[in-house]
């Protein structure tokens, strides 16, 4: 049988309860000033929720390797896009803009 094993009802309920607790947690955390960690906590909890849905509701836990590769590839390519775009914007200005070029002024490089 190619189909996945049938996940016990109990597992689904536990995952669902965990998800609801996490919603409450992440909403509550927004009311506490954690400085830059507000974003980290919010995205960290979102990541955990995503993993719960992926692993149990979407049966990734019981899937074959090919499905894992597909899921990881999607995440990897998304990080490529975000990472390389940010690499550009964050490293701008590391070298100060050169003075406007003019034909009369001699080059100022040492």
């Amino acid at each position: 049988m190619a189909a996945q094993p049938i996940v016990p009802f109990r597992t689904y309920v536990l995952v669902f309860v965990a998800l609801l607790v996490l919603v409450a947690l992440t909403t509550g955390a927004a009311f506490i000033d954690l400085g830059p960690f507000n974003t980290v906590v919010a995205l960290g909890i979102a990541f955990i929720k995503m993993m719960l849905v992926l692993l149990f509701f979407m049966h990734l836990l019981h899937s074959n390797k090919l499905t894992h590769v597909t899921a990881v590839a999607a995440a990897f390519w998304l990080l490529l896009l975000i990472g390389l775009v940010f690499a550009d914007y964050t490293s701008r200005g590391w070298i100060p803009d050169p003075a406007p070029w003019s034909s009369s002024a001699p080059p100022t490089h040492p």
Binding site: W77, L80, L84, A87, D88, Y89, T90, S91, R92, G93, W94, I95
Partner: peptide, 21 residues
């Protein structure tokens, strides 16, 4: 092929460090 797109943007104001990469 997904790691090289910035070479279309060398002269657009993209950061020089990214340009090097």
């Amino acid at each position: 092929s997904f790691l090289v797109w910035g070479h279309h943007m060398f002269v657009t104001g993209q950061s020089i460090y990214t340009g090097l990469v």
